[in-house]
Design a protein around this nucleic acid. Structure first.
Lengths: 346, 346
DNA sequence: CTGAAAGCGCTTACAG
DNA sequence: CTGAAAGCGCTTACAG
């Protein structure tokens, strides 16, 4: 009478169950499900039918224990300790989205870990058998965390960084120099004549510094001098952008365009422009960096330099999983035209 | 002479290695690392020291195979098929962030899967031994996908939905009715007198319909009639919001406020307002729903009703992992005041 | 082409 | 308090 599933046995269906029902050996079930050419089409079909009937599915823990592979990539997103509880930088989630998609196309799952506190850092997913490789992306400002991962890279081949502040590491980055040039050249082509750079040039060879280098190179090629703010407040990027725009305009009344080293900085610039009731793109041009989708909802929508996310995801995955990519690698950038820059002259 | 790690043996360190070096049995190592009270403090310390020295770490595949737990929650994010390659709805990533944090506090890892194509749906992470429970979040518009997961829920206890379009399912949702009332009441209190609802009321008892119900209830309590657009174009939420605002204003010239059923709809309304050069919040009030961080960069920043994300994450996790939460559950909402609504009268 | 068996690295009764 | 052993569910040489 009691045909309802007994509470004592949740009854995991194993390959032995399938084997018994299909009248073959368990090893044959394993081969059939793996699509081994060693097994007859007839046998395989029978096994597959039974497997489907019983709702059998390979246990990845057992499979992974045996093969050494777990078909998973771990992605750790480093946040600033202050970003705890807030959403952190949405750009990282956009990159994460691309990684998930690229991973899925390779038949990999994606394990995601948000980390911020120095004490709770953990990157040995490969050693723990939870992933075949690890990607670390995140804020260059959490330098304690980066230090930890940099050391980890000594002993772990399958670990790669996006946006790490170190040169001596395996990383993937935007082609920041090309991006800086592209933004600057675009602004100049659209008729802006005094183009300022917005972005704190923090410790070491960070991404902002590279974007500045591209800007500077292009500005000098055009026969001008680079212009940048003298200091930046602590706080979020938006506040920094706001203050920089104000300071720059106070000191150089003839500035007519800004290249912001990140979209979040650009949002701050935009905020100041709005306070000034300055018309964009007529009076001022503005280009950001990152291609964040939030830039579609600001007013005007933000023109920005965006890394090729699918390319970035591929490069990161290859480096993390295969573990034998070139030491470091840059991905291309493109201009995402929205509305904070005048149209090209006809 | 050849002391460099031989390429043939990547040499995984196991509990047997630790045991040998510490001069104990492997089972003692296991107990020591599990913090079992059965093991002497002295023994435990020795084992822990050796483990650290050798860089030993428990293999989760083996551990999970033995215990049946894997200490991981799977999160599948359903996207509209069209959203492939785009970023999809950023709100889901904000919720994902909260889930990751809550999971991490429970000592769980988070497996993330972006799914869109009907053929490639997969939710049996528990059966495959990859997770102890599964959370599905995502667009109600991908109804084929929801149908798949709804059926899966018949056979899988540890599966819970955020925002599913079905009533007969285990889900967690915002208290949409309270949220609709809150938005409407707020607009009325701030002096707006003709408040329209923006949002397509799609098939079945979706979240938008609940938000509308809350709006309607409050509007009627205030002695007014609900106002809504007659039709919505296909396309993204922003375009829908734009068209609804235009239609509403054409038909009801005296509208002075909008409650949009989602932030993305609200961004579309905002876009139309900008075209009109209508001043917000003076001429029109606007409240969205979701609490998306992108709402901080639009102009003016968007006042919105936000679900309590940490509470949502806790409820989802409890339902997914423990598998014995109430059949369905609502989480509280709050008003996030930004600048698209007038200040409260003094 | 299929079967019998070993073993991946753990946890946990079972003895002592 | 510690050890010896079984077993979680697979994959894959090894036989035949």
């Amino acid at each position: 009478m009691n045909s309802s599933p007994s509470p004592t046995k949740p009854a995991r269906v194993t390959s032995f169950d399938v084997a018994e029902r299909a009248g073959v050996n368990q090893s044959t079930v394993s081969r059939a499900l793996a699509g081994s050419p060693q097994v007859t089409a007839a046998t395989r079909d029978r096994v597959l039918a039974v497997a489907k009937e019983l709702g059998y599915t390979i246990d990845q823990r057992a499979s992974g224990l045996r093969t050494g592979r777990i078909d998973t990539v771990a992605v750790v997103i480093l946040q600033r300790p202050e970003d705890k509880q807030s959403t952190g930088n949405p750009f990282y989630f956009e990159l994460l989205g691309s990684i998930c998609e690229a991973a899925s196309e390779r038949g990999l799952e994606t394990l995601v870990s948000l980390q911020s506190e120095t004490g709770a850092l953990s990157g040995d997913y490969v050693k723990r058998g939870q992933a075949d490789g690890t990607i670390v992306i995140g804020s260059a400002r959490n330098s304690d965390a980066w230090q930890y991962f940099r050391e980890l890279q000594q002993s772990e081949e399958r670990l790669v960084f996006w946006g790490s502040p170190f040169e001596d590491a395996r990383w993937v980055r935007s082609d920041n120099i090309a991006g800086g040039k592209l933004a600057t050249r675009t602004l100049h082509q659209r008729g802006y004549r005094k183009i300022a750079f917005v972005g704190p040039l923090e410790a070491g060879p960070g991404q902002f510094a590279e974007r500045f280098a591209g800007y500077r190179e292009e500005i000098e090629r055009l026969g001008h001098n680079p212009i940048q703010a003298s200091s930046y407040p602590d706080g979020d990027r938006s506040a920094q952008g706001y203050h920089a725009a104000r300071e720059l305009l106070q000191q150089h009344g003839d500035i007519d365009a800004f290249f912001a080293a990140s979209d979040r900085l650009a949002f701050g610039v935009l905020e100041y422009m709005q306070e000034l009731e300055a018309r964009i793109p007529d009076r001022f041009g503005l280009i950001g960096f990152d291609g964040m989708s939030a830039g579609t909802v600001c007013n005007p929508p933000l023109t920005t330099v965006a890394p090729e996310l699918p390319e970035a995801a591929e490069a990161l995955l290859t480096a993390a999983i295969d573990g034998q990519a070139p030491a470091s690698q840059r991905v291309g950038v493109k201009l995402v035209e929205r509305a904070s820059v005048r149209a090209a002259p006809a």
